[in-house]
Design a protein around this nucleic acid. Structure first.
Length: 896
RNA sequence: GGGCGGUUAGCUCAGCGGUAGAGCGUCUCGUUUACACCGAGAGGGUCGGCGGUUCGAAUCCGUCACCGCCCA
């Protein structure tokens, strides 16, 4: 075999991924006896391409899935994509616009055909890209929210909820996006701070010439639809006007001045104009006072006069008002303000910052708009979902997010589920000639219902609207498994184990899956919700096209390999933290992949080969036992970290073990045992244990860096090609006399480190080896020295190691290691003054520590109140400090 | 206005009652036959401020400041 000097991810990754996929390594097995482990992918938009947020969430999911699969679980990572109603329709409409076409000219059927065609051509982008990341999704099970099965689930759910009265039609204000010309839900609205104005308008009091009530408004353009002025009952000035009437300027309508606590006496003038059809608060006021609710904006948010025609016939300024018809809301605002100013009905204008609702897709201000829409009674569905989290049937990690979930769910509003789009699940409702509604899974069913209702066949027309995309997403945890059919997948893989997603999606998706899962399936959709942060750039800024700081994960994969990107993501994913990521971080972590590769090369060069017959319990050498014992610790740490979703700790445990234990010490200390002339039995054991632990490392790290580990696994022949993905997660092995091995290796490592440290501080060049003399060394230390003499020579640059019985040679450097004093005779190479300073500094540091310790122990409160073991520990430490201080002082004295 | 999170070494972050840590960067030294995407060593912090609880606080409580998110 002979490994290349560099790992080449670009060559390896596609080959291994294809290997895994073709061997069915990602597949779950519904017939197996193994305990299932299920993760539902948050279906990316079919329009999407892989961005850093995807790279984060899918790396974490893949790490979990690969780990559980190695633990022997029957892992299902369910793939699929979302039809993304508005987003997809916008993409295709843009394409059509480039061709000079418009969907309305094409008609619904032709347009939908075009969207499906687009989906067939371009909808696979993201799934291809997920493969580049190494995501081990069960691809043959891939689903799409608009495929036949999922559409059946949507209809089943809609009909069920309708029959239960939980889905209904209602005429009320909705958030209307005038650009997309559809209703949207509260969640799809984002408030943006806009610097605007507060206009103070004078409304003449009816029958009292020269008297006005001044209203303050941020939206003068909607005044045409005013049907009242509201004043707080306790208003000091305007309170007396309650019950009188005002004349709406321009329109001439006589409107009541009503008493309502909604009018805040502190704000503006304390009097507000009431436009029930164009403001959520005003709508409520309108209901309370039984006011007319004329709309004066149309679907495109242009002025329409249709609903105020009745009063316009007698209007004061008909010509002006008629000129507004068809104007945009923005143009109308300017025109109205100018006209009121001309009429001296504009009191003043104040600068004002207000929150303006914008559609999250269209990006334009949304309008409250009075229409009939379909609603889902989320309030009823939320109750069991809240309870499930309260009782721990579903747990959020970090737990913090449960508060966010509760806050939203306890105040949830009716969910507007109808959209005036074409791309989506068409609402399964049909209307008879008299407007009667028949909700059914298909037209035939609806016809049957209509016949029963009318006593004859009537022509039915299906509702034109489609459902909110999130309606079908809410069913994802069970619709993908075949529901409403009672498949074995539904029985086996529902509920899922963990949902991994970002906090931005808790309301949109997590909450709705909880509601639908509990209502339709009678159980929560997942046991755990792991919420990760956002990916930000290196400076902590949100990535966005406008900032120009977007990093493309595919470019990072091209440059550094998928493993480097994945390991970086794992390393940086702490609990509840955003991930700040730049190319340099990925480059840094690539170093770890390279390190692992080179360690493996060394193993290979030194004849370490997998040996299935190797029994760790039979290892004799302290070095072997120490390595096996340390590996046990790393496995325990890594496993514990993954169990609690600490990806950072999992990565760190692997990093430390590979770099600081396996490479820095095991391989270095093994070198003398592998040279010619070393004991062949020792060499054989070291080779076997090295190969064993390398195999363990590959298994331990595979979930986060699947490619390099699989490549090494295959090249070394630990198993069949592409078999690491299915190998067993490592377990602790029994290690004979582990404590003794730990004590010995710990001592060797500290001895070498001490000698290195002294030499470096004294500026002894590595080219000048020196003898290492040991003073006051007990027998156990001398025995160790005997065993480790070669390693100490190499790693501590020692020409020899000897016992010092007589005086310390002139010009020696000294250091204290437990009861032993290390003496480096370096006459001529070191400066005695520097050595004195160095020893004194070491001593003084300890003196300060010892003093603190003594003060603590002299405090009777501490001794009587602190835990016994803490007191004992402090006593031991103080004794240790004092002994070391004495030895350092002795070393200083010897310098004279 | 309400809520949440953050503030620890130059940077990114762990630690969350009992000896202040890691990675990266910095500085010094070094090519010793896996690795310069390397090795060895070193320096670097009154743990945001102020109070309190405790024998003991980076850690618990209160309060303030600043930063960031979410909701109104």
């Amino acid at each position: 075999m002979t490994l290349d000097s560099r790992f080449a991810p670009g060559d390896v990754e596609p080959r291994l991924y294809a290997g895994w996929e073709s061997e069915g390594s990602f597949a779950c097995d519904p017939d197996s006896n193994a305990q299932p482990f299920t993760i539902m992918i948050p279906p990316p938009n079919v329009t999407g391409s892989l961005h850093m947020g995807h790279a984060l969430t899918f790396t974490l999911q893949d790490t979990l899935v690969r780990w559980r699969r190695m633990q022997g679980r029957d892992a299902l990572w369910q793939p699929g994509t979302d039809h993304a109603g508005i987003a997809t329709q916008m993409v295709v409409e843009r394409l059509l616009a480039a061709e000079g076409k418009d969907r309305r000219e094409m008609g619904r059927e032709a347009f939908l055909e075009r969207v499906w065609q687009w989906k067939a051509e371009s909808g696979g982008t993201i799934t291809t890209q997920l493969r580049r990341l190494g995501a081990s999704l069960d691809w043959p099970r891939e689903r799409f929210t608009m495929d036949d099965g999922l559409s059946a689930a949507v209809k089943e759910t809609f009909v069920t909820l309708y029959n239960q009265g939980l889905i209904y039609r209602d005429r009320r204000l909705v958030n209307w996006d005038p650009k997309l010309q559809t209703a949207i839900s509260d969640l799809e609205v984002e408030n943006r701070e806009i610097k605007g104005s507060l206009w103070y308008l004078r409304y003449p009091i009816e029958g009292e010439p020269g008297q006005f009530i001044i209203v303050a408004t941020t939206r003068p353009e909607t005044m045409l639809g005013d049907t009242a002025v509201a004043v707080h009952p306790d208003h000091p000035v305007y309170g007396t006007l309650i019950g009188k009437r005002a004349i709406l300027p321009l329109v001439g309508r006589s409107i009541p001045i009503v008493s309502d606590t909604y009018a805040d006496p502190e704000k503006g003038t304390g009097a507000v104009k009431i436009t029930p059809a164009h403001d959520f608060n005003d709508f409520e006021v309108g209901r309370r006072h039984d006011l007319p609710m004329p709309s004066v904006l149309d679907r495109q948010a242009n002025i329409t006069l249709e609903e105020i025609e009745d009063v316009l016939t007698t209007a004061a300024d008909t010509t002006f008002v008629r000129s507004l018809a068809g104007q945009s809301r923005f143009a109308a605002r300017s025109a109205i303000v100018a006209e009121l100013e001309r009429l001296e009905l504009l009191e003043k204008i104040e600068p004002h910052v207000n929150q303006v609702p914008h559609g999250d897709r269209g990006g334009v201000p949304v309008e409250p708009f009075l229409t009939t829409q379909w609603y889902c009674n989320a309030g009823v569905l939320a109750k069991p979902a809240i309870e499930a989290v309260e009782t721990g049937k579903t747990v959020f990690v970090p737990k913090q997010w449960e508060n966010t979930f509760f806050a939203w769910m306890r105040d949830i509003q009716p969910w507007c589920i109808s959209r005036q789009l074409w791309w989506g699940h068409r609402i399964p409702a049909w209307y008879g000639p008299d407007g009667s509604v028949f909700v059914a899974k298909d037209a035939a069913d609806a016809a049957v219902q209509a016949r029963a209702a009318y006593g004859r066949d009537e022509e039915l027309v299906q509702d034109e609207d489609v459902l909110d995309t999130w309606f079908s997403s809410a069913l994802w945890p069970f619709s993908t498994l075949g529901w409403p059919e009672q498949t074995k997948e539904v029985a086996r893989y529902y509920p899922g184990d963990v949902l991994v997603t970002g906090f931005d999606i808790i309301f949109f998706w997590v909450a709705r899956m909880m509601m639908m899962g509990l209502h339709m399936m009678g159980d929560v959709p997942f046991r755990t919700v792991y919420i990760h942060g956002l990916v930000r750039d290196e400076k902590g800024q949100k990535m966005s096209k406008s900032r120009g700081n977007v990093i493309d994960p595919l470019e990072l994969i091209d440059s550094f390999g998928a493993d480097a990107l994945r390991f970086t993501i794992c390393s940086l994913t702490g609990p509840g933290r955003d991930v700040k990521l730049g190319a340099s971080r990925v480059q840094d972590y690539r170093g770890f992949v390279t390190k692992l590769w080179n360690a493996a090369r060394f193993c290979e060069m030194n004849g370490m080969r997998p040996d299935p017959a190797f029994d760790p319990a039979a290892a004799k050498l302290p070095l072997s036992r120490w390595l096996l014992d340390t590996a046990n610790g790393a496995v325990a740490e890594a496993t514990a970290a993954l169990e609690v979703y600490r990806f950072d700790e999992y990565a760190a445990a692997g990093y430390r073990f590979v770099w600081n234990n396996f490479c820095d010490w095991f391989l270095e200390l093994a070198k003398p045992l592998l040279t010619e002339g070393a004991d062949p039995a020792d060499a054989a054991e070291i080779r076997a244990v090295g190969a064993h632990v390398l195999g363990l490392i590959l298994r331990l790290l595979h979930p986060s860096i699947p490619f390099v580990t699989e490549e090494l696994w295959d090249r070394f022949g630990y198993g069949e090609p592409c078999s690491l993905i299915g190998a067993a997660w490592p377990d602790a092995v029994p290690v004979t006399e582990a404590a003794a091995a730990r004590a010995e290796l710990d001592w060797v490592i500290r001895l070498i480190s001490e000698v290195r440290s002294v030499r470096a501080e004294m500026n002894v060049p590595p080219s000048k080896p020196s003898p290492v003399l040991l003073r006051d060394a007990p027998a156990v230390v001398l025995a160790r020295v005997d065993r480790w003499i070669e390693a100490i020579r190499r790693l501590a640059r020692a020409s020899d190691v000897q016992v010092l019985t007589g005086d310390v040679p002139k010009g020696s450097a000294q250091a204290v290691l437990d009861e032993t004093t290390i003496v480096l005779p370096l006459e001529g190479l070191i400066d005695i003054a520097v050595e004195r300073t160095r020893l004194a500094k070491d001593r003084d540091k300890l003196v300060i520590e010892a003093k603190k310790m003594r003060q603590k122990l002299d405090n009777p409160e501490f001794v009587s109140r602190a835990k016994e073991e803490v007191v004992a520990e402090n006593r031991e430490r103080l004794a240790g400090f004092e002994a070391e201080i004495a030895r350092l002082q002795a070393a200083l004295d010897r310098l004279e």
